[in-house]
Design a protein around this nucleic acid. Structure first.
Lengths: 233, 233, 233, 233
DNA sequence: AATGAATGAGTCTTCATTCAT
DNA sequence: TATGAATGAAGACTCATTCAT
């Protein structure tokens, strides 16, 4: 079997896993279901992925890759101010998370694991199968890639004056990211047609984005050079 | 057994459950562990809580109650501007989430369930045991309580001029909340001593709070009456 | 359930396990078979025994206990010379091994494990489940009990003159034991009605015992008091 | 592929199998391990050996062949008394079993199977794959070869007077063999530096051999009378 | 001869939940 | 109320073996 065929099958299993994990969640998805849905035998899934956790980490890795490509796509378009990039990113981010629930859930879950991983004591509570997974190891390496791109965007905004110069790029970007993460989580409870809370998604999203922009925007028009003053942070 | 004794034992089980869910997570916590740690028999836990999911919902309910009391505590202190209240809330929120990981996880998890619950199709995928739990039902009723208090705070800020008058209270508050949710999630990955990302928690938190304030603050000093103009949202 | 009932059930499972391990061997015996044969559920076997290996070690422990009682029985009968005791032991040993194949197999298997256990390098190859078993730990403690009784017997023979005085008790006893172990193993191949080898079990056993006696016996008649001279060893 | 090449590869697989069976045991050795270690594909092992059991029987067969050559080597040396031969055999036997654990284990295991095989009822419990193996069939044919050589040795001893004339050759030899089998098995437990049992391997082996000689030796000196001085033990 | 992807029967083990006492 | 022995469905994972190429 040529390598490409091997990768194709591996991808097939991955795709099925994504679908099932999305639909039923990790815990409720049985390896046998994955195999059946992929039209292969149970054993073959274990040929391509060491165990269920490894498969999940592979899904997470793919999620990260796709996620990163969102960042990249927006970053590579020329002629936009930094603030515009961040704004575009926010929209793309929200669209992505809604369209790829499981990917997003996997990414968030990974962040949770990293929290434990970075804590000497909690680390031992992480499932060893996760730590052993090669995909997890790769994820550890690339975990900051998206952040780095986002920071570049903010840095651009600082330079072109579309973002207030006294802001610090890293702090600012991670704060933006926080907003986006929380937004997604709140969409559910908020977006409900309750009688008591009048806010609706259609109202919230533009307001959310506008607030974000207000938080960032500089007085000077984009694309103009600007001397960076002493940072506040 | 007098009612108070019954409640005492119920609370005991709950406390143990909180501790164990916090330490080991929901899935890895066995009902037997809970019983043993509480010094009672396995069967008895089922007398007080219908099933494991019910117990978890009870934990969530308690989490919500404590969470709500944070909001209340801050809201009831007189003499502060709305912006100050939101700022205090942010600090208290972050402290709470760090000190009560499981509570917070339970709340977030509940939000996730509500997302499914609010979607006709996804609702059927929720574990029936959860839907049946009386604690879940109660949670549905009170789910917006915190939001309402938060919105009150923003409204105060709008009135006293400490928050920009063109903002819309609900949109604004939920955006703040988004930030806080995301902040907590990002703390793990961000707060690591990586070589590539220079941001550290000590740097991020003040920057984060300051950005939030910048996003909100009005030109007029707090505690002064202000005519509310037409909202932009 | 009173403790005795608990022990009764534990014993029931043990007995079934012995029977099945004997009949089908350890590897081919399924835990489910044990449960079914004992008329209980699969889960209950795991309530009484941590896992399959633990159950096997429990069987081994019981084997050792019964084995030891053989030694004890023979040792406690008064009025026999040491040589007679050893002779009786040989007969009892052979009878026991034939009547309790699995017990004996378990004991031999344990000896094999101990060989590995006593070797730094090989130890890591032992199934961890075995090492963890409390029954294994107990076995380690009592492993020399039979040997000690046997050595006493030989010592008696040395003192009463029924065994040649120049022999060293420990060396002698373990040599006897070697013979017995090997005898059991060879019975199968030897005891076959082959055309080429004329030896039969009926012929071999008395010859075997007689050889053993010849190997040991002293010039002085048993049962006569004898001043024990300074031992050479 | 010329026949010799085929045999070479077959031997390669066999050698690897021996090594792995020795190190990890039969059950824990996977066919894939054997293939990998031999640098061939999994499928190919099945070209040379029908199945895992067949491979094990091939290993056993090879063990028997090597074992037999030990007997032959000693038997063909001229000018030794029968007793001396048996003594030499004992030493060679012990050396062999220690140096070739798996060979020896395979031989013992085969003896165990033969026990079952010789019993109408137990025979059906033997793995059919073993019974089908051509190597097993060959083993059945040659199983007594070693015994026959040993019996020749004893017979020589009876004739040259180095072994007591009243002994029966077959009974005597199989008793010797029993001792040797048991010795190997006991080496592990005995050879441990316990506090309670003082015997050590260095002490045991000479004592063991001497006892064996005492058991056999005739009154007429093979090659010269000899006063037995103070015991060596 | 040789490969290695693919199969799937086979088993151990877990644990939420029940129920006789 | 309280116990803890008993249940059994569920699921992950292994590995000898096959077979298309």
């Amino acid at each position: 079997m040529p390598i490409s065929a091997r990768e194709k099958k591996s991808k097939l299993i991955l795709d099925v896993a994504i679908k099932l994990f999305t639909t039923k969640g990790f815990a409720s998805t049985k390896m046998e279901d994955v195999a059946k849905e992929a039209g292969i035998s149970k054993g073959l899934t274990y040929f391509y992925f060491k165990n269920k956790e490894d498969l999940y980490m592979a899904v997470t890795k793919k999620a990260f890759d796709e996620f990163k490509s969102i960042f990249r796509e927006i970053y590579k378009v020329k002629g936009k101010s930094g603030l515009q990039m961040i704004t575009d990113l926010a929209h793309a981010y929200i669209d992505f998370t809604q369209a790829n629930k499981i990917y997003y859930a996997a990414i968030l879950n990974f962040m949770g694991i990293v929290q434990q991983y970075n804590n000497e004591e909690l680390r031992r509570q992480i499932d060893p199968l996760i730590l052993e997974s090669e995909h997890f190891q790769k994820l550890l390496e690339i975990q900051h890639d998206c952040g780095k791109i986002g920071i570049q965007m903010v840095t651009m905004g600082l330079r072109d004056g579309s973002i207030r110069p006294e802001l610090q790029a890293e702090v600012t970007f991670y704060t933006i990211w926080s907003m986006l993460i929380g937004y997604e989580r709140l969409m559910g409870p908020v977006g409900y047609e309750g009688k008591e809370i009048k806010i609706h998604l259609e109202n919230w999203k533009p307001g959310f984005v506008k607030l974000m922009q207000e938080m960032l925007k500089g007085t000077i028009q984009a694309n103009k050079p600007q001397v960076v003053q002493a940072s506040l942070f």
